[in-house]
Every structure is written in C-alpha cells, then in structure tokens.
Amino acid sequence: MDKDAIVQLLESSGRKTSPKMRIFEDTSNFSRIDSNDVMVLDGSPYLVLRNEIERGFGMDDDPKFWVKRVVGLNDGKKKIIKLVFYERFEQKIGDVSVEFFRSPIKEAKVLDAVAGNPFFMQGTSVNDVMENNVRIIDYINGTPLNAYLAKSTSDHKTYFENELPKFLSNLLDCMESLGFLHEKGFVHGDVRWDHIFWDRDNLDFRWIDFDYNYDFPQNPYGADLFGLGKILTSVFGRRKFLYYDLKTDPQFTHVLNDLYQEDFSLLDQNRFINIKKMYPYIPDELNNIFLNFSGYASNFYLSVDELFDDLRKALKVVYGS
C-alpha cells in the first residue's frame, strides 16, 4: 500500500495527515514507531494513536513501546497492536524466584484458541514483511477490574451483601474460564486483577494480555492459580490489603492485635489474605478457600476446577445460589 492511498484513507475518515507520518511494514524496530505513523500489516493500514502504558505496578507512566493503540483505516475500528518483543526475566514471588518469558507466539496461539469465547479478548495475528508475529487485538471499551471495584463507595458489608452479587456470577464465569485455557494447554501467565477487563459494550468480564509465559513442568498452572487466589481475595475484600494498609488504616487496627504470619499470602508475605479478620461476616466456607493461598495452607489447588468446585459450594452457603 502506497502513501497516497493511506493519505486518502486518512482524509476520508476525517483525520489530518501528519507531515511527519511514516509508513512501517517492518515492525522490528518498534520503538521507532510513534503516534501518527501508519503500520501496514497484511495489506491493512493502521494509524498509530499512542503507545500503551503499563499499569498495575505503580509505573503508570512507563510506556510499552511494543504495544500500540491504533485505528484501522479500512474500518475505523480501534485496535491494540502488539509487536514482537521477547523478554526473559526473573521475578521474585515471596521467597521464590520465578523466570517469566514474554512470548508473541504464545499469545498468537492463545488468541486462536479463545476465538469467539466471550471471556477473553479477541484478535488475530499476522506476520509483517520481516515475519514478525504481530497481534491485532480488538479494543475493549471498558475498565480493568481493580478500577471497576474501586467505583464502589459503600461500606464493605453493603458491597459484600448487595453490590457484589450483581456482578459476581459474570465475574466468576470469566475467572473460571481460565480453566478452559488450561484445558487447551496454555497458561495465561500474568493473572492479575487489572488483566480482567469489564467490557462495557458486551457487558462481560474478559481476560486480556496473554503474552506472558512460564514453565513449571511439575505444576504448569501454579502461577495462574496463585493469581486467581489473589484476585478472589481482592474481589471479596473489594481491594487488596497489604501490611502497610493494616498499619495505617484506623478501621483495621483491631486486626493488627490479632495478626499472624499465616494470615498473609504463602508466596507474598506482605499481602493479607485472611480477610475474615477484617470482615467477620464473611462465612468460614468462603474464607477457608482464601486461606488455601495463605500461610495456613497445607494442600494446594492444582486446577481451576478444584478451586471453583469449592468456591461454588461456598457461594451457595453465602448467597444461596
């Protein structure tokens, strides 16, 4: 596709053409590709709007240069384009050092595997002229789960008893669909609450970002399950609780007087798990599931099915359905 055709498409969509606009068919050097540039992938032009930014680690301003928010010039739809970026790094989880990988190929395979599944982001993958695997993902008009939960301003008891039941079923269906991914032989790789998006258009929760990978042959889904445990406690607690929060928030001072190391996450000793100590009306049946991720645990969940079998039973006790 030549520059004139692209300019024509831009004008027909009512957009101005930047005099600095560049056209990229080779995406190897993704840091050079910036806003107002156009990427041509598999014959389709995409106007780059901006680089996406990393969220969730308190590094909100860190741009992810390999992830571009774009608009398709053929159909005018917003997309997220993820370019090839291999990364291999060690991450400390508690006292355990874990090696993670960022794998474009893996994400492309997952996109194929979850095509049509409403609980996962949707997209396709194409190769650019240099055979780089580029993923073109449908933009989700929504908000991450942490932001979604933060909107609730009522007291926790009201949230737990009245607000949570309204979206819990939908959310749990999404979380449980991680088992579907595992059945296909894939891990999510980066299970966090900000990797579940509330899709305002389709009224679904969806998993996003599949390019992380790890390799634990003895427990291939261990890290995903650990992530699910964290999300569950955050959902039922409406927020995540760190030791710092307990120390500084006056409403939790009573918890400080009755605190044991076992009340915290088995892997992340800073993260508080035993939320019944804060909210005594949380039934044991439910809280005991959270404790399987805490220092009290002696048996560990090995699959999403195991976890959700217990969870569904507990929820019958809590909400009666």
Binding site: I93, D95, V96, F216, Q218, N219, G222, L266, L267, A297
Partner: peptide
C-alpha cells in the same frame, strides 16, 4: 521444597 516452592512449582512426588 519450601511450602511456597511446592505451592508454585509443584511437587510431583507429593502429587
């Protein structure tokens, strides 16, 4: 293995 190692990486013998 520590319990956290078993939790995360798994222990085939125990399983």
């Amino acid at each position: 293995l520590s319990r956290s190692q078993e939790f995360l990486f798994g222990d085939t013998a125990i399983q």
